[in-house]
Each structure stands twice: as C-alpha cells, then as structure tokens.
Design a protein around this nucleic acid. Structure first.
Length: 789
DNA sequence: GTAGGGTTAG
C-alpha cells in the first residue's frame, strides 16, 4: 500500500530533508534520518485512513471556511447559473463553469461548497446534476478527498452519482485498495456500471501488480453486458509486455480474437512496442504489416515505436528509414518523433545536432515537452556543459514547463558525477522546496557524488540510511556503493556488499558484476575477474559490452594483446556492439604493439560505424605517435580533432608537450606552452611539471625556474612530489646550488622535506665534498624530526 | 479507461 500511495499525486511535505542534513552535517546520528523516513510511512498511513473514512461517508471534515459576504454572493450567483445551465441541459457550459469554480477554490474547499449548496439550493430540480458535476470536477483535478466529501454528502441527500463520476474516482484511486470501497459504493447505490468501469478496475489491478487477479477479473467479466472490452485486453497485454512476457501478451491477443473482439491500433502498438523493447525488430515489422493487412492503419505512434526500436539497437539508420516511411504516408513528425531523433543524435555524441532539432521545433512553433528537454539536459550534463543546461532549465520554466523529478535528477546526477556535489545539493534543496519529491534516482545521484568525492565513510552512512529506510532498496544503490569502494581499490568491502545483497535476496544486475570485475582487474586479480564471467552466466545474465571492455582493458594493461583480441572476437560473435571505449582499448593495445597504421585505420572504422572518437581515443593514439618520434603525425591528429569539433583536452596538450620534451625539440615544447597560454587554453599542472622536469634534466635551470614560477603564479597547488622531481633531477646533474634554491623555496612554501629528498641531497653534497652543506641540511633534518640523534 | 519519447551504477 505504501508504495502504491507513493505514486499518488497528493501533495506531501518535503520529507527527505533529514537525509540531506545528515549529509551536510555529518555529526547528527543516522537514526534521526531513519526515524524521519519512518515518519513518511506513518504519513501515508494517515492519509490512507483518512481516505477510507471518507469513502464510507463518515468523515467529520474540517469546518467549512466562511466566505466574506461579497464572495459568498458571487459564489451563490455562480451556482445559480449552474442550476440554470443544468436545467437547460447546457452541459458543456455547466462543465466549464464548475471546472472554473473548482479550480478557483482548490484543495480542501469541498466542505464550504457543499455547505453553500445545502443552504441555498436544497431541493432544487437540477440539484443532482450540479452535485454530480462538482464531484466529477474535483476528481478530474485529482482532488480526491474533496471528491469523496461531495459524494458522502450526496449519499446523505440520497442523490445518486453518475457512473462517469465514479469511474473517474476509480481511476484516481486505482493504486489503492480504496478502489474496491468505491466499487462497493457503486454496487450499493445501484448506479449501472458502464463498459469503462471494468477496464479501470483491471487497470488498477495491473498497476498494483495483481496480474493474476486482473486476469480472473477479465474471465468473470465475460458474458456480462459491460464485460469484455478491447481496452481491458489491451491493458493486460501492456502489463505482460512490460514484464517481458511477450508470449503471454500474444496469447491474449489471440484470445481477444476468439472472443469476437477486433484488435485496434492500441492492441497492435502494444505488441509492436513489446517486441521493439525486446529487440525483435523483424517480428515487430511483421506485426506492422499484419496490422495493415487487417485494415488497422499504422498511426504515428506505430512509427514512433518502430523508430525508437531501431534507436535502442543503435541502428539510427533504421530509425531514419522508419521516419521517412512515415513522412511518405503523410504523417508529420510530432514531438515524440523529434524527441527520438534528438535522443539518437545526443547518444551518438552530436549534441549540436540535437540542439539544432530544438531550434527547428521552436521555429515550427512546436511546443517542446518536458521529455524533449530532459534528453538535451542529459546530453549537456554528460559533457559537463552545466551552464547551458541551466539556461535550458530556465527556458523550460519560461515556457511554463515545470521541471519534474527526472529533470532535476539529471542535473543533480550530472553535477555529482563531475564532483560538483555542492551545486548538486543546492538543486536538491530547490527541488524539495518546490515539493518535488526526490526518488531513488535522485538519492543515487547524491550517493554517487559523495563516492566521487572519495568520502567513502560518509557515502556509506548515506547508503545505510537509504537501505534501512526500506523505502528505497535498489540494486543500483548497491552498485554505486560497491563502485565507490572499487574506486578506492577496496575490493574486499565491495565483495562484502555483494554478499549482503545476495543474503537480502536482491537480484544482482550485470553492472554489479561489471563493478566487481573492474575491482578485481584493478587489484591485478585477473583470474578472479575471469571467474566472474561464469557467475554472470549462472545468474542468467549476458556479459555486456562493459564486461568485455573492462576485461579487454585489463589484458591490454598486462600486455596480453592476444587475450584482448580473443575477447573482442568473442564479443563480436555474440553480437555485442563495441562502444567507443571498446575501440579506444583496442587502439591502446595496437599501440602497445606499435601497430600504428592499424590503430589509425581503427580510428577511421569507428567514424564509419557512427561512433565518435573522444579525447581519450585521440590522446591514446597521439601518445603512441609521440613515442614513435613521429611528432608531425601526432600534431596532424591534434589538427584532426579540431577539424571534427573535438576540443583537445588538457591531457592532449600534456601528451604533446611531453612528446616534444622527450622525443622532440625542447624549444618547440616551450613555444607550444607559451602559445597555449596566449590562447588562454586551459592547462593542468602536469603541462608545467613536464616542461620544468625536462629543463632540469637537460640542465637549463633558468628556464626551469621561469616555468616553475609560472606554475605557482597560475595558482596550482605545488606538492612535495613536484619539488622532489625537480631536486632529484638537479642533484643527478650535480647542480647543487640550484637544488638548494628549490629546497629553500619548498621550505618557505611551508612544505616539510621527507627522508627521501634529504638523502638525495646529502648524497649529492657528499659527492661534491660540500661538507658545510651536509651539516646545514642535517641541522634542518633534526628540526623536522627526520633525524633522531 | 488502453499504446509511443526522458534520468541511474561500470
């Protein structure tokens, strides 16, 4: 009941703040959050109880609010008009007037409105129509409590509600058991059911996952006047498709025919959708032909389903063909068609094309939906283009589209993944303030963010709170937590969590295993990783492209290129499509074997397959050409990146600078760094340390000093490792004074020397016979506690 | 009253 009620739309206070506060302020005990989550439980229980009392018509509601005289008069005249309209059977106008009243009055207004009707219109002829329309309007606005209040009053007055009103209520209460109370009321009142009533009840049973009951209900409905309908069958078929039982869904399709009912476009579309989701495009297309043969014309929904099916398989070409077919049939693409296309572009990494479609839609005066925006938001976030994403969010608002829990979760997830947990939390708070209830996606995003920050104990606290609350228990949360441990190299803890989830009978997913495989590979336990492949199969799961790519990468890292290629072949034999990560790993393997031409060829193959190489792909191959001392080819690849609108990353420049330093001309490295600075290209500290180290090694200390100071000026945090790297190299070349210069700089920077750096310097001083410096350094070491005696 | 497009974890 709890979860079902969760899906209902009534307003709730933002209950999840406590979890957040425990995240922001690590101190408070975790039980506080758990207690608050249980409060959530009670809250739902109360609401359930309240509704039940309503449903039996014994509710003593809040006192009716008192209207000021002017408002009272206005309301009375509105209802006067309502009665006149009802009397004239002007139902359309009556309908809009009552809707307007309910919209004005809002939630909780039923007691006062009822009081007003009782006081002023008691016994009027058209009373029943007005009362019924009022209950109906409340129900349509999802103000269920108000609707039930009106119905209870009607019962007192012996006014029988219409089946339309009851049906609407049934629909709103389909997630709860109260649905049956309403149904009993219908029976008691003697209101005749219509053909919709049963299908709503069946829908409710389906949504409550009581599929068996739904089927029994369908069977007992057979033969009654208002019994079997195509809609009931469609509803049940939808449910079976969603559960992946396509054969069962098909058998219901046949049963429908046997019962003499003709499948409609919904029936066909439901099955075609099920087949597409299962990846059976061929059969889906057969069904479409079948549909045409039986005189049911495929509609825009059919085409969209098929296009999405191709998209799911990564076959955008097929999707395009479907859409062209659709255009030829005279259908215009609708917002769903556009969204599928946007999604296709975005997933191929072509955000710009996706954004162009948005412009096209706007210029054609198409209203983008919240879903179209989500697609774009997700894509922008994946590329860390948060500012643009936020602009889109504001654009949505300006168009009157209120971002929902998914839009927010996308942004929160994107920010967390890039380590901007603080900004993510601000959005989380904004979302709660707007009474948008976070779901496990949102919580998962925050958990991921804490893990990314490396704050594993804090993450675990958050995780434990979530899973002990019993409200959110999901394999994804386990996967994220396990991923957090693996990232820190703590495979043991990840395995423990795996055991815990098995004990709790939670079904692991392929990601669970991929995470463990990744962990074992990282700890150089390749055999254990390999063994998990069998475990995956034992669980009836198929290794995914990530499984293969992770293992391939591990083989590549240990230099077993043949092993890597074997996995690639196995993967291809199983028709698992390689991603750009897979390609990048293979390119890395080929580079290790110095198969440069082949790796360039693979880069071209990728593009031919519609996979866009990313910075990492290029960096891998550029690095290889640098090592092969083919710097001109390395730079040519860099230019190719620009040509393809792929912005080289700071790592690209580190690779190139390192290439010039080690395998080329150091002067060119200097020039490159200076020109990048001029162009305000963003660089990391590594660019500077690389060039500084190169100058130290080659003995041009003055240039090393210049670049070192530039690095400091740029605000990079200098560590003892950076000083050691420089001092080591200087000592190696016996540049003692220069080494001392950096040593002093380090001390004045507040960094204490370590044993290793001191030994290197002592060694160099001894070699030079510079005893004075030896004593000086020994004194410094005593000061730092590095020498005990 | 029934069908289609969006968010996770590696």
């Amino acid at each position: 009941m709890l979860k079902k009620l969760h899906q209902c739309q009534w307003n709730k206070p933002p209950l999840h703040f406590p979890i957040l506060s425990s995240l922001l302020f690590p101190k408070p005990s975790s039980s506080v959050s758990a207690a608050m989550l249980h409060h959530d439980h009670d809250h739902d229980h109360d609401q359930d109880h309240q509704l039940k009392t309503f449903a039996f018509g014994r509710f003593v509601g809040p006192a009716p609010r008192l209207y000021p005289p002017a408002e009272l008069n206005r309301k009375i005249s509105q209802f006067l008009l309502s009665h006149v309209l009802a009397g004239n059977r002007s139902f359309k106008d009556l309908h809009s007037l009552i809707y307007q009243i309910v919209q004005q009055e809002g939630s909780g207004s039923a007691p006062s409105i009822c009081e007003l009707l009782l006081n002023n219109f008691h016994g009027w002829d058209s009373n029943i129509v007005v009362w019924d329309m009022l209950a109906f309007a409340y129900s349509r606005f999802e103000l269920v409590q108000d609707a039930l209040f009106v119905l209870a009053k009607m019962k007192d007055l012996n006014l029988r509600a219409s089946i339309q009103t009851y049906n609407s209520l049934l629909h709103n209460l389909r997630h709860t058991d109260i649905m049956w109370d309403v149904r009993n009321e219908i029976r008691d009142s003697g209101t005749p059911e219509n053909e919709y009533t049963n299908s709503i009840l069946i829908h409710g049973l389906c949504e409550q996952s009581r599929l068996q009951d739904a089927v029994s209900f369908l069977q007992i409905s057979e033969g009654k006047d208002t019994g079997l309908s195509v809609v009931s069958f469609n509803t049940i078929m939808t449910r079976f498709c969603k559960l992946g039982y396509l054969d069962v869904a098909k058998s219901f399709f046949c049963m429908m025919l046997k019962c003499g009912l003709l499948p409609d476009s919904y029936s066909y579309n439901i099955l075609i959708h099920g087949l597409c989701v299962a990846g059976s495009m061929e059969e889906a297309l057969e069904f479409k032909n079948d549909m045409e043969k039986h005189g049911v014309e495929p509609d825009i929904v059919t085409y969209n389903i098929l296009a999405k099916g191709f998209h799911l398989l990564g076959l955008m070409g097929g999707a395009w063909k479907v859409i062209q077919d659709m255009l030829l049939k005279g259908f215009n693409p609708d917002v769903v068609t556009y969204t599928i296309l946007m999604c296709g572009h975005c997933q191929m990494g072509n955000i710009e094309e996706g954004l162009k479609l948005r412009e096209e839609m706007l210029s054609r005066r198409f209203q983008l939906s919240i879903i179209s925006y989500s697609v774009l938001l997700s894509c922008l976030c994946k590329s860390a283009r948060f500012e643009e994403a936020l602009i889109l969010l504001y654009e949505m608002e300006a168009l009157g589209l209120k971002p929902d829990v998914i839009s927010y979760s996308i942004l929160i997830h994107g920010l967390c993944k890039k380590g901007e947990v603080h900004r993510a939390i601000l959005l989380y708070e904004e979302m709660c303030l707007r009474r948008i209830c976070p779901n496990y996606f949102t919580h998962g995003a925050i958990l991921l963010g804490i893990c990314e920050k490396g704050n594993i104990s804090e993450a675990r606290k958050y995780f434990d709170n979530l899973i002990t609350s019993d409200l959110v228990e999901d394999i994804v949360l386990y996967n994220i937590m396990m991923g957090g441990y693996v990232k820190l190299g703590n495979i043991a803890e990840a395995v423990q969590l795996y055991q815990k989830l098995t004990e709790k009978k939670i079904t692991p997913s392929i990601v669970t295993f991929n995470t463990l495989i990744h962990g074992f590979c990282k700890s150089n336990k390749l055999e254990e990783a390999w063994r998990l492949l069998d475990t995956i199969k034992l669980h009836g799961l198929d290794p995914s492209v990530v499984t293969y790519t992770t293992l391939m990468n591990a083989y590549c890292e240990v230099g077993n290129i043949d092993g890597m290629l074997e996995l690639l072949w196995e993967m291809e034999a199983k028709a698992v499509m390689p991603t750009r990560v897979t390609y990048t790993v293979v390119i890395k393997g080929l580079c290790k074997q110095w198969k440069l031409q082949e790796s360039v060829k693979l880069l071209e193959d990728m593009r031919a397959k519609g996979l866009t190489p990313d910075q990492i792909t290029y960096n891998t191959i550029i690095q290889c050409f640098c090592k092969a001392r083919d710097l001109s080819k390395a730079f040519q690849l860099h230019d190719e990146m620009l040509l393809h609108n792929l912005e080289p990353s700071p790592v690209t420049y580190n690779v190139l600078i390192n290439g010039l330093c080690v395998y080329g001309d150091l002067k060119d490295a200097d020039k490159l760094l200076l020109s990048l600075e001029d162009q305000k290209v963003s660089l990391t500290k590594v660019a500077y340390t690389t060039i500084v180290k190169a100058h130290c090694a080659k003995g041009d200390v003055s240039r090393a000093i210049i670049f070192f100071h530039q690095m400091v000026e740029k605000g990079f945090k200098i560590s003892i490792k950076d000083y050691s790297a420089v001092i080591n190299r200087l000592c190696k070349r016996c540049l003692i004074n220069e080494a001392k210069y950096f040593f002093c700089m380090m001390l004045s920077d507040g960094i204490s020397p370590d044993q290793e750096i001191c030994e290197v310097m002592l060694n160099a001083f001894h070699q030079q016979g510079d005893l004075y410096s030896v004593f000086e350094l020994l004194a410094e070491m005593i000061k730092c506690g590095l020498l005990c005696d």
